[in-house]
Computed example of a mutant assay.
Amino acid sequence: MGVRPGHDPAGDPDGPDARAGVYEQVAEAITTGLRGAGPADVPGRLCAVAVALLPVDGASVSLRGDGMPVQLAASGPYAAHLAQVQATLGDGPCRDVLETGRPVLVRDLAAGDGAHRWPVFAQQALGAGVRAVYALPLGSDAACVGTLDLYRDTPGGLTDRQLRAAVLVAGVMTAALMDLPYDLPEGEGPWLEGLAADHDRVHQAVGMIMVQLGIGADEALARLRGDAFAHGRTAVEVALDVVSHRRRFDTR
């Protein structure tokens, strides 16, 4: 049985029966969503489960990276773009969750705290049609290894029961990521190979910018991000140009 967006999966009162109801429906949705999935498909399938269970329009998962988060999967192009915006800007709920290990729940990016905390990200997200963002940590109390980011086109919060469902999905996402094998069967190669390549390109580009301008790594990464933002591109796209010698930072 599917769960329509916006439906409260727990039912009525918030008690043991309601909590059990949340668990059962989330477990059923995850089991159905992962049926037949290979290791590389699991993160994206879980993002789709989150969208089906909750009143959200997109979901993405990012892993902690050295300097910037690495997008692992998304429910679709819309969510993938928003994850790249956060990584490129170095600004947004994903960064805050990685720094604090605590959930960040923004009811309305156009008002109050969200617009003040992340003015540039809020502007970009609102331009893409996003009004609310909910970011949940992946990992444990001791270490946050990534984030599950949920995007919504209309303002509003999650009920306690909807938040419980989101936390359950994040918990399964964490367990799945910790349990996935690095190597795919039948010689298909490492399932994280593409992500690692993107991350390596950014680091290589940062090193080249450091040499070109005689600056430190943090400033070089800031220059890379700033150039990407100024030209409406992602940090990975600009990094590829730098590594391919199509873009230099020591020329006007």
Results as ranks from 00 to 15, higher is better:
M1P: 09
D8G: 14
P9N: 10
A10P: 00
D12N: 06
D12F: 09
G15H: 14
P16E: 14
D17Q: 04
R19G: 13
R19I: 05
V22I: 12
E24V: 04
V26D: 06
E28T: 12
A29T: 12
I30F: 11
G36S: 08
G38W: 08
V42N: 13
P43T: 10
G44E: 15
A48H: 11
V51Y: 10
A52K: 03
L53K: 09
L54T: 06
S60C: 12
S60P: 10
G67E: 05
A73Y: 03
S75E: 12
P77N: 09
A79W: 05
H81P: 02
L82C: 04
L82V: 06
Q86L: 02
G90D: 02
D91M: 02
D91I: 00
E99V: 02
E99G: 04
E99C: 07
G101L: 06
V104R: 02
R107Q: 11
D108E: 09
G114M: 06
P119W: 05
V120F: 08
A125Y: 02
A125S: 03
A125E: 01
G129P: 02
G129L: 01
A132R: 11
A132G: 13
V133W: 04
P137V: 00
S140H: 06
D141V: 02
D141F: 07
D141I: 01
A143G: 01
R152D: 09
D153M: 13
P155N: 13
T159L: 15
R161A: 14
L163F: 07
G171F: 01
A176Y: 04
A176K: 08
D179R: 05
P185H: 01
E186Y: 15
E186K: 09
E186D: 10
G189Q: 07
P190Q: 08
W191F: 13
H199C: 03
I209G: 01
M210Q: 15
M210T: 08
I215G: 09
D218I: 07
D218F: 15
D218V: 11
L221W: 05
R223I: 05
A228L: 09
A228K: 03
H231E: 07
A235L: 06
V236H: 10
A239C: 03
A239W: 00
L240D: 15
D241V: 02
V242A: 11
R246C: 10
R247F: 12
R248S: 07
T251R: 12
R252T: 03
